[in-house]
């Protein structure tokens, strides 16, 4: 017969924890972080997931370079604060006062506004919205944020890639907190993405026709086809053929094309920049 245990085991509350919690103090607190946040408008949170998909790179970013001051999904802050860089995800619905107000406020309180992802830059799939959907049938006008506020920089694509977001975040840090040399590099790196923001709020696979082939610039490398998230581009006799009925207007193909922009002073330094970003992301110091 099994021995009957009369006394129940001690309640967890009675267990004394002997282990000492070691209070670690950051040896080298990084005072020179920039502040940044995520503003969520009419997007699917895929852009934010992409940021998180940097995995340990995200931790490194938050540890050493960026105070993440606003993010409805990740941070308990209910109101848009002042910040250096605002990453805005999603297009803005003109029929939703709150969204429009949040966007206006973001512009007023941020030094740099980044349109994060195809919806914020170009409308992306929200371009096809015509209202009538549950549960806000009157929400029918979705526009890229650049139609409502001035935008400083675009990160196109659906979703924008973890790597592109990381590059922009590191370069933004160098621009605001780096040495003169780093500032110069960051400026050259970011300029084409700032030029994209000036270029406009419309994108389509057709851009490859209008602004590359029609401009006599396509050399048939095929990178546009590789960058398309919906496989709307096929290379036929060495040139892109675009199935516009598949295109979601994310802007990736044109931005990725080496003949949309190729700033040689930056591209020629590819090895050094790759090492710089890798070093910045290496754990345990710069």
């Amino acid at each position: 017969m099994a021995e009957v245990v009369e006394k129940p085991a001690e309640k967890p509350g009675d267990v004394k924890i002997e282990q000492k919690v070691e209070v670690t103090k950051e040896e080298k607190p990084v005072a020179e972080k920039i502040t940044a946040g995520h503003v969520h408008l009419s997007g699917c949170t895929g852009c934010l997931v992409s940021l998180a998909d940097n995995y340990e790179g995200l931790f490194k970013l938050l540890d050493d370079y960026v105070d993440w001051v606003y993010d409805l999904t990740l941070a308990d802050v209910r109101h848009v604060p002042e910040m250096d860089v605002a990453f805005v995800e999603g297009s803005v619905c003109l029929n939703q006062d709150l969204a429009v107000e949040e966007l206006r406020e973001t512009r007023k309180k941020s030094k740099v506004v980044v349109a994060l992802g195809g919806c914020a830059c170009y409308g992306n799939v929200t371009r096809f919205g015509r209202g009538g959907q549950w549960n806000q049938p009157a929400h029918e006008a979705y526009v890229p944020i650049g139609d409502v506020i001035d935008v400083d920089l675009y990160i196109p694509g659906c979703a924008p890639t973890p790597q592109q977001i990381l590059h922009v975040a590191v370069m933004a840090y160098l621009l605001l907190k780096g040495t003169d040399e780093q500032k110069e590099l960051a400026t050259s790196y970011l300029k084409p993405l700032m030029d994209l923001a000036k270029r406009g709020t419309e994108a389509c696979g057709c851009d490859l026709m209008y602004d590359v082939i029609n401009q006599s610039l396509c050399m048939g490398c095929g990178l546009c086809a590789a960058s398309c998230p919906v496989r709307a581009i096929e290379m036929v006799y060495g040139k892109p053929q675009i199935d516009t009925s598949l295109c979601i207007k994310c802007g990736a193909c044109y931005a990725q094309c080496p003949r949309s922009f190729l700033n040689l002073d930056v591209i020629n330094e590819f090895e050094g920049i790759g090492e710089l970003v890798a070093a910045a992301m290496a754990t345990g110091g710069e």
């Binding site: 890639t161 592109q164 490398c221 990178l223 998230p229 802007g251 990736a252 990725q256 190729l262 920049i273």
Partner: peptide, 22 residues
């Protein structure tokens, strides 16, 4: 690849707009 395709390789690495973990 040709020189222009090498430019495409490096742009894909430096500006990975549509190049998630590539």
């Amino acid at each position: 690849g040709t020189p222009c395709q090498m430019q495409a390789v490096r742009k894909a690495q430096l500006y990975p707009v549509g190049m998630r973990y590539v």
